[in-house]
């Protein structure tokens, strides 16, 4: 109990500490690939520290919703992060059915983020909120068709056990897992508002989803939002990296090695994807998401009939 608990605490601290670094690395990769020098890798930390010391400005029409929403966002991200395995360590929150809690805790964050956006009473935020609600709806099935299907096949319903159960001893299962990881990647891109669904770097209101929702926030509120979006990106990165744990012969040191190399490799992949794709038109995003869902369904059906 004692050691597992300690490991769980360390995992969550690692996630919280390294999340901005991951985002910084992705941006750096992207800058290099497009021929720029780019901001330093530690830039997200600098920005967070800067925001920390800024004055908070609330919109005149806003209410207590926009005051509490950033807090709820960050805390629920941390709780969600506490369910994910880092290396081969058992996460601090791990029980039967935590996969449902994971999905719904992220839903809690989203619920309040949408409300906070609508709280401003400006059409820009409204636009972002409506888009978030719509796209999140299509993103939900992808999560359950990938992680959920592994769970139903293995018979486990705790995230740690689900990833633990993946074993590469059967070709059709291997293919199944690989395709699942692709679907999860597409999901991660959507949920973390990266290209080709959303562009985290533009600041033109009409084209954004996540950025436009936090348009009227500043100071500590923006700090909380930014930090939770970094953690969210890292959470989805971990969901993706965890697919590679079966290679590690189930030892802790190799698990940690995979965690590190996996994260770095993923920043490369994200950087490349963001460089070679452009953002889709808003109209086409549901199609993109339904495509990912369709991959999930097909993959599941193929696996069921070939195993």
């Amino acid at each position: 109990m004692g050691l597992t608990f300690l490991q769980g605490i360390i995992s969550i601290i690692v996630i919280m500490a390294l999340a901005p670094l991951f985002a910084g690395m992705v941006n750096k990769q992207k800058a290099i690939l497009t021929g720029r020098i780019g901001a330093p890798v530690l830039q997200p930390y600098y920005e967070l520290i800067r925001l920390f010391k800024k004055e908070t400005i609330n919109a005149g029409t806003s209410s207590f919703i926009s005051r509490i929403s950033p807090l709820i966002n960050l805390v629920s991200m941390i709780v969600a992060a506490a369910m994910l395995p880092v290396g081969f360590w058992k996460p601090i929150i791990s029980f039967n059915g935590d996969i449902i809690l994971f999905a719904y805790i992220l839903g809690l964050a989203r619920f309040f983020q949408i409300l906070a956006a609508m709280d401003i009473g400006s059409s820009f935020e409204g636009m972002g909120a409506a888009r978030e609600a719509t796209f999140a709806l299509f993103a939900e099935p992808i999560f359950f068709f990938t992680i959920g299907s592994i769970s139903f096949i293995s018979g486990y319903n705790s995230l740690f056990d689900i990833y633990h159960s993946i074993q590469l001893n059967n070709v059709s299962y291997e293919v199944f897992i690989i395709v699942c990881s692709i679907s999860v990647f597409m999901l991660a891109v959507t949920e973390c508002s990266r290209m080709p669904v959303d562009d985290p770097n533009t600041h033109l209101e009409l084209t954004m989803i996540h950025e436009v929702m936090i348009l009227d926030n500043s100071g500590i509120d923006l700090f909380l939002y930014q930090y939770s979006s970094y953690i969210k990106l890292f959470i989805y990165a971990l969901l993706e990296i965890s697919f590679f744990y079966p290679f590690s012969q189930k030892s802790n040191s190799v698990g940690i090695l995979i965690f590190i190399t996996g994260s770095v490799a993923l920043t490369f992949v994200l950087g490349i994807v963001e460089t070679i794709t452009s953002r889709y038109r808003m109209k086409n995003i549901p199609q993109y998401l339904l495509f990912a869902t369709a991959i999930g369904i097909l993959n599941l059906l193929i696996y069921t009939f070939t195993k």
Partner: peptide
């Protein structure tokens, strides 16, 4: 976190302003 936020807002200031309207 809310208590922390209140403390920071006290230190670095907080005010209301009109929403961004482009």
């Amino acid at each position: 976190l809310y208590l922390l936020k209140l403390k920071l807002e006290k230190k670095y200031g907080r005010r209301t302003s009109a929403a961004w309207g482009c």
